[in-house]
């Protein structure tokens, strides 16, 4: 029950609107090409922040900066300052493995490992050493799958391979896999773009539920989705952050002409 006590300790910082992550003056280069230009953005705790914008605007790139997934790409270089709970994540002292445990990620295409459903969810806790006994691990798997709304569907076939599930189930499995590590922030890179409308609706519902426990950043192509699931929306265009604000405000009363043009469908 150590987990529970830790949870209690972790709940101190629950002030609404507090910035969980903060980006200041972030520039990002792929080789010579500048992909992000001086981004300033706060990600508020226990809210869903949607990043929207036309293709190639840098929204996914920015998302991948938040847990340093760009590190592996050759020639990628990040300048500026991204803070998680006040600590610069590009600091030498920050360990990228630990960072990614705290800032989890769900990808565009469902990418379950070619292992059993159980092993998929248990993978993260195992590598991070979060469970000391088999029972603890079982519980984490069950809780994570339950939170991802998948438990009832798969509890009878936990040992079957994860790649055998339907696309929507696979994506929920990937979400469960991310939750199992107990991250503080979950990044979602167009999580529904490969799914049909019904599966999409389920995932959106799930994102809404997860908001009570996690800080979520979601990149989406669909403005309706951003409107449905997010509290705050940031509009990116050509590597710049054009506008950020409450979702309702962005969609009803955008301040910038480019935002206006995009949400009314003049380009995109």
């Amino acid at each position: 029950m150590e987990i529970k006590t830790k949870v209690a300790a972790g709940q101190v910082s629950q002030a609404d609107g507090k910035a969980k992550m903060a980006a200041r003056g972030v520039d990002m280069y792929y080789g010579e090409k500048k992909a992000l230009k001086s981004i300033d953005l706060d990600i508020r705790e226990r809210e869903v922040t949607a990043l929207i914008g036309p293709s190639g605007c840098g929204k996914s790139t920015f998302l991948r900066c938040l847990n340093r997934m760009n590190d592996v790409i050759e020639g990628a270089k990040v300048q500026g300052d991204i803070r998680l709970d006040g600590q610069n994540i590009y600091d030498q002292a920050i360990d990228v493995v630990q960072l990614r445990a705290r800032v989890g990620m769900v990808f565009q295409k469902p990418n379950p490992f070619p292992k059993s459903i159980y092993e998929n969810v248990a993978y993260g806790p195992k590598i991070h050493g979060l469970a000391r006994t088999r029972e603890e691990l079982d519980r984490i798997v069950e809780t994570s799958l339950t939170k991802a709304g998948l438990w009832e569907e798969v509890k009878a076939r936990l040992q079957e391979t994860g790649t055998g599930l339907s696309g929507g189930q696979q994506q929920r499995l990937c979400i469960a896999r991310a939750i199992a590590v107990s991250p503080e922030v979950i990044l979602m890179d167009e999580p529904c773009s490969a799914l049909d409308p019904i599966a999409t609706a389920k995932i959106e519902e799930l994102i809404d539920e997860l908001r009570s426990n996690y800080t979520i950043v979601i990149v989406t192509h669909s403005m309706q989705q951003a409107a449905r699931v997010s509290q705050r929306t940031a509009f990116f265009h050509l590597g710049e952050l054009v506008e950020v604000g409450d979702t309702a405000q962005i969609f009803t009363n955008p301040k910038d002409d480019r935002t206006q043009g995009y949400i009314t469908g003049r380009f995109g």
Partner: peptide, 27 residues
């Protein structure tokens, strides 16, 4: 082995060797 599996593992905070040993080699 598709890059998406490497990304998936790295996104969960796995080290390179953990990704290789537990995801890539089994796959």
């Amino acid at each position: 082995v598709p890059q998406s599996l490497r990304d998936g593992s790295a996104g969960l905070g796995a080290t390179k060797s953990e990704t290789i040993k537990q995801v890539i080699l089994p796959a």
